[in-house]
Computed example of a mutant assay.
Amino acid sequence: MPVTPGTPAARRASADRETRTLPALAAGPVEMPHAILSWSEVFARDTVWNEHSHPFHELLWNERGASTAVVGPRVWTITPALGLWMPAGTLHSGSAAAGTWCRAGFFGFDAMASMSPTPVGVEITPLLRLLLERLADTGLPAGSRAVTEAMVLDVLAPSSRELLVQMPVSDLLRPIADAVRSDPGDQRTLAHWASRLGVSARTITRAFNEETGTSFARWVAAVRAQHAVELLGRGWEIDVVAEEVGYRSASAFGAAFRRTTGLTPGMFRAR
């Protein structure tokens, strides 16, 4: 999502929202002063990026708040604990809420042959965070930078945990997906949707597994977690967020949120 080094971004701003337009560039070598470049920005407005791509790899993560990255039907939420590896040349769009402190590392095209060739979640461990923060120091001596970059390349690895929602695209599931995305607190069950759509619950279950790779219940939980991250990032109170995304108690919401994000709602909100 960040601006390609040396490439200006066209910006259109309103009082509360800014749109940034970036080019779609193919993967390939690009001249960079270091093996890993650091980028950081705190957004005063809600900000969106058009679909674009970079010639280099990106590791996206946040110091504070939540942002999203979209690749086709897949929507990732990026947090201080869960980052996203975006391979070079991958078309993606994105957004960040006002107040979000976004960070990124730009990796040369040949730097990470061992990483996934497709976008994948990355756990921002305390060690990885420390190393990335060290690389943000523009006064870091060349020898120390080389050692730190080598350590980043050594510890960076895909995570089995990520805030990802795979959007269904069939006419059957689109009404369900639209309803839950517009109101994550929607309490309608699988049986209700089956009755409304005139199909069996088994048909919907099979369709969800085929199109999203998960069950209806887990898909709804993922949508709720993404929405909760956005609201907490905007400063909403935890109990209000819990009710907004469909949990009957703050404790139940807290347990579900930690399972998904690796942070308690309080820890995330404080960041």
Rank of each mutant, 00 (worst) to 15 (best):
residue 153 L to S: 10
residue 77 T to Q: 12
residue 30 V to L: 11
residue 68 T to D: 07
residue 6 G to Y: 13
residue 240 V to H: 13
residue 42 V to T: 15
residue 228 A to Y: 14
residue 232 L to R: 14
residue 76 W to T: 01
residue 48 V to L: 08
residue 93 S to Q: 12
residue 148 T to R: 10
residue 108 G to F: 08
residue 62 N to P: 02
residue 148 T to D: 07
residue 90 T to K: 10
residue 100 T to Y: 13
residue 236 W to F: 12
residue 212 T to F: 14
residue 30 V to S: 08
residue 238 I to E: 05
residue 145 R to I: 04
residue 111 A to M: 08
residue 265 P to Y: 05
residue 123 E to M: 15
residue 141 P to D: 11
residue 258 R to Q: 04
residue 153 L to V: 01
residue 98 A to T: 02
residue 110 D to Q: 14
residue 2 P to R: 15
residue 239 D to F: 00
residue 44 A to N: 11
residue 104 A to C: 11
residue 141 P to C: 07
residue 265 P to N: 04
residue 149 E to D: 03
residue 167 M to H: 05
residue 113 A to I: 01
residue 253 F to K: 01
residue 257 F to P: 00
residue 251 S to L: 06
residue 158 P to R: 14
residue 199 V to A: 09
residue 196 R to V: 08
residue 270 A to N: 09
residue 53 S to R: 14
residue 14 S to A: 14
residue 167 M to I: 01
residue 101 W to S: 04
residue 227 H to D: 05
residue 215 S to H: 06
residue 27 A to H: 11
residue 26 A to C: 05
residue 191 A to C: 01
residue 57 H to Q: 04
residue 190 L to D: 01
residue 57 H to Y: 06
residue 152 V to L: 07
residue 260 T to R: 14
residue 177 A to K: 03
residue 181 R to A: 02
residue 122 V to D: 09
residue 236 W to Q: 09
residue 142 A to S: 15
residue 28 G to F: 08
residue 1 M to V: 03
residue 59 L to A: 05
residue 67 S to A: 11
residue 10 A to S: 13
residue 115 M to H: 09
residue 184 P to F: 07
residue 208 F to Y: 09
residue 269 R to A: 08
residue 24 A to L: 12
residue 166 Q to F: 11
residue 265 P to C: 13
residue 138 T to H: 07
residue 242 A to D: 00
residue 165 V to W: 11
residue 171 D to E: 09
residue 141 P to M: 15
residue 263 L to N: 01
residue 137 D to S: 08
residue 57 H to I: 01
residue 221 A to L: 06
residue 33 P to G: 06
residue 105 G to Y: 13
residue 13 A to P: 01
residue 238 I to K: 04
residue 268 F to K: 07
residue 29 P to N: 06
residue 88 A to P: 05
residue 89 G to N: 08
residue 192 H to S: 10
residue 35 A to V: 03
residue 1 M to T: 02
residue 221 A to P: 00
residue 15 A to P: 00
residue 36 I to V: 10
residue 134 R to Y: 07
residue 18 E to S: 11
residue 259 R to I: 00
residue 230 E to C: 03
residue 23 P to K: 04
residue 157 A to M: 08
residue 258 R to L: 11
residue 234 R to Q: 15
residue 207 A to K: 06
residue 166 Q to A: 09
residue 90 T to A: 12
residue 1 M to H: 15
residue 80 P to S: 07
residue 14 S to M: 09
residue 266 G to D: 10
residue 27 A to W: 12
residue 267 M to E: 12
residue 124 I to G: 04
residue 215 S to A: 03
residue 107 F to C: 04
residue 188 R to S: 02
residue 82 L to P: 00
residue 38 S to G: 04
residue 54 H to F: 13
residue 263 L to I: 00
residue 143 G to D: 13
residue 124 I to V: 07
residue 240 V to C: 03
residue 218 R to T: 01
residue 64 R to I: 01
residue 92 H to E: 05
residue 257 F to D: 01
residue 114 S to C: 06
residue 74 R to E: 08
residue 196 R to P: 00
residue 123 E to S: 15
residue 245 V to F: 06
residue 172 L to R: 05
residue 81 A to L: 13
residue 250 A to K: 00
residue 77 T to E: 09
residue 167 M to T: 00
